[in-house]
């Protein structure tokens, strides 16, 4: 099993901490951090056995739906491995492409399409992430929010239960739990 060199990890963490202190001044820094956090989430979430994640021949696909706020930040994720798989980052224009993704970042621009997007996914084991207030209540699994200088996230527990994904309790510990239908 290929391992990430220790130096790489140290570098990433350093970078993460650096960006944490910088993102407030620089809006691109905020998405840089969020890009890192996307990768971190995968570490504490297990996809169910038998899903495409267990198929080593296919890459781990991260899809961005709508306007991509990350710029080139997501490109760096392609150099990493998630769940021992090559990482592929795609931008989705046609919602029909959603099926082959493992993780979907739903841009705030797609707020009106959110219900459709979520319906397309239905109960498939796909990690949905957003950074728009109210997304979690609407069925997005993880939603970033701001708290002072810190970027935090909230999770929809019932949506997670439906998705079949398994969230580490440790991850849950950091998350704000939202009930569906709130707001």
């Amino acid at each position: 099993m290929p391992r990430i060199p220790l130096a790489a990890g140290v570098f990433l963490t350093a970078l993460l901490l650096l960006s944490a202190s910088l993102f407030s001044a620089d809006p691109s820094a905020e998405y840089k951090l969020k890009a890192e956090m996307l990768e971190r989430f995968t570490r504490f979430i297990d996809w169910p056995a038998g899903s495409s994640v267990s198929n080593p021949s296919v890459p781990f696909v991260i899809a961005v739906v709508g306007v991509n706020p990350f710029g080139s930040s997501l490109e760096r994720l392609k150099e990493m491995k998630i769940k021992d798989k090559r990482v592929d980052v795609v931008e989705i224009k046609d919602l029909s492409e959603l099926k082959s993704c493992q993780m979907i970042f739903i841009s705030s621009s797609q707020e009106k399409n959110l219900t459709e997007i979520l319906s397309r996914i239905e109960t498939k084991p796909v990690l949905t992430v957003g950074d728009t207030s109210g997304f979690a209540q609407k069925g997005v699994l993880i939603n970033f929010y701001r708290e002072g200088d810190f970027i935090r996230f909230e999770v929809n527990q019932s949506a997670i239960d439906v998705s079949g994904l398994k969230f580490s309790s440790r991850l849950m510990k950091l998350a704000r739990i939202v009930k569906p239908g709130n707001k």
């Binding site: 956090m37 971190r40 440790r170 510990k173 950091l174």
Partner: peptide, 19 residues
Amino acid sequence: GDYSVVDLAFSDQEASAKT
């Protein structure tokens, strides 16, 4: 340490203090 992994992973010092 295990409990602190996420704290470190997400640089959450507050959560870390609690942990």
